[in-house]
């Protein structure tokens, strides 16, 4: 056997190697995505509609759909998650009901997103006859997003010192007011960070969408903003393939001649968008916090 000192050195050396390898993996991944993807990016690529059997299509519609779905999903899920988080933070008693509810939320957060998507398909697309549509997709994304967003908001509320809450109560505020008017504003920076990070997750999600928002992207008329027209970008009842779904779709169908180039470009856009979300989350969170505390 090695003596403990040598053993120590070898072990720590190995750990350096392992950590280095993990960094290398990320660098290789990012490098590959950016090197193969960035050259594809152009104004045309980002705005033109896709072409099924021809080279030279873009991802304009898909990119727009991704953002539209993201915003809708966030608009639906944020108030629900906020309400649920406030209840858990302020009102939930420490009893079996609360434990059960927390377990249910945990189960939802650990469900494979494909199961959430299939449920969305069954319930919204088929049962409620919403068809493959933005709305079905937004609901599926909402379900996918709710548990983590709820937890992140609750955690954010818990970072605020409880003396703030008591300060509010001592002024004769109801608990509801103490949470929504004292704790919540103070927690905004951290809630915002959580929201943006979850937006990144939602933006890249595909499995929950292929059977809800659908896999086709009808051309959009960007001059028509009447949500009741089928080609209007705002129409929530049209099928809407997103960028993430697009990558999956063109790679599994293989009828697009430049599928690889398009996928590389789309992957780069997706990853850059998510990097952007990450930086924005950090930056805005810090800035807001400073605004809140600075003289």
């Amino acid at each position: 056997m090695m003596n403990p000192k040598t053993q120590n050195k070898v072990a720590i050396g190995t750990l350096y190697g392992v950590a280095g390898l993990v960094v290398l993996i990320l660098l290789a991944l990012l490098g590959y995505i950016l090197v193969s993807g960035l050259p594809q990016l152009s104004w045309h690529f980002l705005t033109a509609p896709a072409k099924a059997f021809l080279k030279g299509g873009g991802v304009g519609v898909q990119l727009y759909n991704s953002f539209y779905l993201l915003i809708l999903a966030m608009l639906i899920s944020f108030p629900i998650a906020l309400g649920a988080a406030i209840y858990l933070y302020e009102y939930a008693k420490d009893n079996w009901v609360t434990t059960t509810i927390r377990t249910a939320i945990e189960i939802l957060s650990s469900l494979p997103s494909v199961v959430v998507g299939l449920f969305g398909f069954l319930f919204f697309v088929v049962k409620l006859r919403l068809g493959f549509s933005i709305l079905s997709g937004a609901f599926a994304l909402t379900f996918f997003n709710l548990p983590l967003l709820t937890r992140s908001i609750e955690d954010s509320l818990r970072t605020i010192d409880t003396t703030q809450r008591e300060g509010g109560l001592a002024l004769g505020l109801s608990r509801w007011e103490a949470v929504t008017r004292v704790i919540l504003p103070a927690a905004v920076p951290s809630i915002l960070t959580g929201v943006i990070l979850s937006a990144g997750r939602v933006f890249g999600e595909a499995a929950a969408l292929i059977y809800t928002a659908g896999q086709s992207a009808p051309a959009l008329d960007f001059t028509d903003w009447n949500p009741f027209n089928i080609s209007s970008p705002l129409n929530p009842m049209r099928p809407a393939e997103t960028l993430a779904v697009h990558i999956w779709k063109i790679n599994s169908e293989g009828i697009m001649p430049d599928a690889k180039a398009i996928s590389s470009g789309s992957s780069a856009v997706l990853v850059l968008a998510i990097l952007l979300f990450n930086f924005a989350a950090r930056y805005l969170g810090k800035r807001l916090y400073k605004r809140l505390t600075s003289a």
């Binding site: 629900i80 309400g83 649920a84 379900f143 509801w176 007011e177």
Partner: peptide, 25 residues
């Protein structure tokens, strides 16, 4: 006191909605 009841009901409904989603799925 009125706000308190309102807030409790609203936030609890949100929570129940999530539970309903889980049960539904």
């Amino acid at each position: 006191a009125k706000l308190e009841i309102w807030g409790k009901v609203v936030s609890f409904s949100a929570l129940i909605l999530i539970v309903a989603v889980v049960v539904g799925i």
